[in-house]
């Protein structure tokens, strides 16, 4: 009984410390110095929220770059992964279908290899990035839909490439699309 009461009181104290004071301290520091990041890296256009820089969103308009396919159809609450195995016929079919769709949308021939990030789905279902190759393949489509010179879009893309010592080079698709809306001839 003594052990029980000691446990109960210690649990209360430690819950206050680890479940109250600690998260509040992190929250306070985060809000003070990294408010934008702590609140979900939200992006706005014309004063309304269009999404988060970190979350991919469904894009069907040819005027915008498309992100990676999503197994959960870009749902955010909760997002989903395919969890399919390499020996899964479903996965083979999905990859082939994604490849075919991408070729059709971008009018690419069988001779053009399609990067794997465009044919597979991500772990989070919300992968915000694409490889530079995957973005570049979409330039002709986006340029013709917007009546813009491809070189202009290409130059924008080159400015948006992110490199890191700790991962592959990549481009954030939503941020790129928002900048695209600001491009004029």
């Amino acid at each position: 009984m003594k052990t029980f009461l000691q446990s109960l009181r210690l649990l209360a104290g430690l819950t206050l410390l680890c479940g109250g004071l600690y998260p509040l301290a992190v929250w306070a520091v985060g809000q003070l110095f990294f408010h934008h990041a702590a609140e979900g890296s939200v992006l706005t256009q014309d004063d309304h929220v269009v999404g988060s820089a970190l979350l991919a969103q469904k894009t069907t308009d040819p005027r915008y770059f498309s992100p990676r396919p999503s197994a959960g159809d870009y749902a955010t609450v909760a997002s989903g992964a395919s969890n399919l195995a390499w020996t899964s016929a479903k996965l083979r079919d999905a990859v082939a279908a994604n490849e075919k769709d991408f070729r059709t949308q971008n009018q690419l021939t069988e001779a053009t290899p399609i990067p794997a990030d465009l044919t597979t789905t991500s772990g989070s279902g919300l992968d915000p990035d694409l490889s530079p190759e995957a973005v570049r393949l979409q330039i002709p489509r986006v340029a013709s839909a917007r009546h813009l010179a491809p070189e202009k879009i290409s130059a924008l893309i080159n400015r948006r490439i992110e490199t890191s010592l700790f991962g592959p080079t990549r481009i954030n698709v939503l941020q790129l699309n928002l900048l695209l809306d600001q491009l004029h001839d």
Partner: peptide, 27 residues
């Protein structure tokens, strides 16, 4: 947090995506 992990007590944020659909941003 500095890298972008959320730390907020606010409700989920409602966004209207570029495609015009609704998106709920969890926090």
């Amino acid at each position: 947090v500095a890298q972008g992990v959320v730390m907020s007590f606010n409700p989920y944020v409602h966004a209207v995506t570029l495609a015009g659909t609704d998106q709920l941003i969890p926090l």
